[in-house]
């Protein structure tokens, strides 16, 4: 991330950017509140022109810590890229959806929701994408416990008896 992008963003959204101790230039951490406006700004401003959302990643930092969402943006025109990180509360993880800005975010956000239970507010079709609809729990969270049965199918946990 170049310094220019950071300056443009700091001027446009002075309160949304979380101050960092070391600005290594790899990523930018923002608060979840204004994310939709920032994303629209990143997409529509001609000198930024982030037309490609390459990836959305969910991160769980452990049962005592927070959840996190990361967005990897890239501009086909200017050939620059940017990583946005949003730290979320573990109890009520909610972040505005950017599915209306980058259509590819539709399935990305559904997958992050499926695995981490992070709710993307404003998403028009937020369902599980890989797991069955009646699945209980968020499997990639660190404190997830494998269910013992699924529709009467036993999922053996203790493996010693089987070997």
């Amino acid at each position: 991330m170049s310094q220019d992008i950071l300056n443009i963003l700091k001027n446009a959204f002075p309160s949304a950017i979380v101050e960092q101790e070391t600005e290594t230039g790899d990523y930018l951490e923002i608060k979840p509140g204004e994310w939709f406006e920032i994303a629209t700004f990143l997409h529509d401003t001609p000198e930024l022109h982030f037309d490609s959302l390459q990836c959305i990643t969910g991160v769980d930092w452990g049962p005592e810590a927070h959840l996190e969402v990361r967005y990897n943006l890239h501009s086909m025109k200017h050939k620059h890229k940017l990583e946005i990180r949003i730290v979320l509360d573990r109890e009520t993880p909610e972040v505005p959806s950017v599915e209306k800005i980058w259509r590819v975010a539709d399935w990305f956000e559904r997958e992050v929701y499926d695995m981490y239970g992070i709710v993307f507010t404003g998403h028009r079709d937020l369902r599980r994408i890989l797991l069955p609809d009646d699945w209980i729990g968020w499997p990639l969270r660190k404190d997830y416990e494998t269910p013992e049965t699924y529709h009467g199918i036993v999922v053996p946990k203790i493996k010693e008896e089987w070997e």
Binding site: L131, P139, Y144, T146, P147, I153, V154, V155, P156, K159
Partner: peptide, 15 residues
């Protein structure tokens, strides 16, 4: 997926 596959059926003979 024997040990850690939370979503995998542990042998089709269970079904």
């Amino acid at each position: 997926y024997w040990q850690y596959g939370y979503h995998v059926l542990k042998g089709v003979d269970l079904v």
